[in-house]
Design a protein around this nucleic acid. Sequence first.
RNA 1: GUGGGCGUAGCUCAAUUGGUUAGAGCACCUGGUUGUGGCCCAGGAGGCCGUGGGUUCAAGUCCCAUCGCUCACCCCA
Length: 422
Amino acid sequence: MKIQALKGFKDIVPGEVELWQYLEKVAREIFECFNFSEIRLPILEETELFARSIGEATDIVEKEMYTFVDKKITMRPEATASLLRAYIEHGMYVQKPVQRLFTIGPMFRHERPQKGRLRQFHQMDVEVLGSENPRVDAELMAMGAMLLGELGISVSLEVNSLGCPECRPGYRTQLISYITERLDALCGDCKRRSSTNPLRVLDCKVPTCREQMLSAPALQDHLCAPCADHFEKVQAGLKQLNVVYSLNKFMVRGLDYYCRTTFEFITSDLGAQAAVGAGGRYDGLVETLGGPKNSPGIGFAMGMERLVLLLQQQEKDYGTAEAVDLFIAGIGEHGSHGGFALAHALRAEKYKIAMDHEGRSLKSQMKQAHKACARFVLIIGDAELASGKGVLRNMATEQQQEVLLAVADIAALIPFLKNSTY
RNA sequence: GUGGGCGUAGCUCAAUUGGUUAGAGCACCUGGUUGUGGCCCAGGAGGCCGUGGGUUCAAGUCCCAUCGCUCACCCCA
């Protein structure tokens, strides 16, 4: 019986890992520009943390978490809860009134895998803690849009407001009565949702449900004055930054903690997994988790597997591993022995040196050098050892010349490696 | 948890109505150059045809089960 990776767990192998490195590099650069600091968080947390933040009744907490039941700990299904826990634990709200943090890493949810969805998946997660200002909402969305634009990924940004604990309950009551009136016309899932999560009925994919919900009461029309004002200012900020967006009054969030602004970056190129990034405001969450009162927060997460899939669809070259500076081809045991220390000395000078230790023929080693995109090959055989001079071949120009082989003489070799032509 | 599609070499795929020793391309190794890459040529290695059972004179092919992959639903990044 062969041992293989768990269902929904994937290796990121050479040839693919370069794309991930590129993605992370671009993201870090942009997060830097917006003055975010990286925070690295543990993968395991007390189960209680997620139950309280994400919501006891959500699918994630109810049936998708990897939990060590005996130890009451859980592998994080998302990053926000962990990040807020760290924020509170280190009293970061004291150090700086507004904290801008990001984290990148794996998350775990026990779901059935499909395109763009794995059991171990990776997110880039960005959070602003301590500001209620709608400009921050707009700024975050603008940053997400900038990142996706930089990556060449085209998406649409959909925005909505979920209201707050002041105005949502009243709306919810109206919605439930609207749904109840036409319950018979809705699909089975929606019948279930009507009691578990009525807001979810709004974004059902079944056409007949959509039709039924077209004239449903809209969240936007039932926002309290502060929420309506906040939402207006968010949109004004987006316009000021020329961020293209559209309002989606049917957009709902899955996690309990969201309030006011919510948004999703949507693609049409990933099958069922339309959202490559999503987030929103969670003004009560810090307090819920034991932090100070009146600690607003907002954040979003991007699904890295989904971004990688989209980058792969572009079929651009994101650069494989760096080319080898020098391939040392030793002929026979003596030649290899002669090149061994030289390779080490050049590596200490930060050159990328490859060499074959398997005693293969020179022809075979030339092939290896070619495959590794080596700029130079240094050939060392018995004749070279005898004369103390090796043959340095420029693989591009096919020119060859003699160079001193002694480790003490590498200073003479380095100028050749620095310039690809000589 | 539910439903569809698919499992043949490291990868992408062939194999007639069931019919001899299961093939190709790419990749890999060796040689064509007693010490020189790409292109070309020749050769080689690599498969319990996912697994188990059944039908049959005969199964990669048909049937059943099982495992895995995949897409979709639910849910979500």
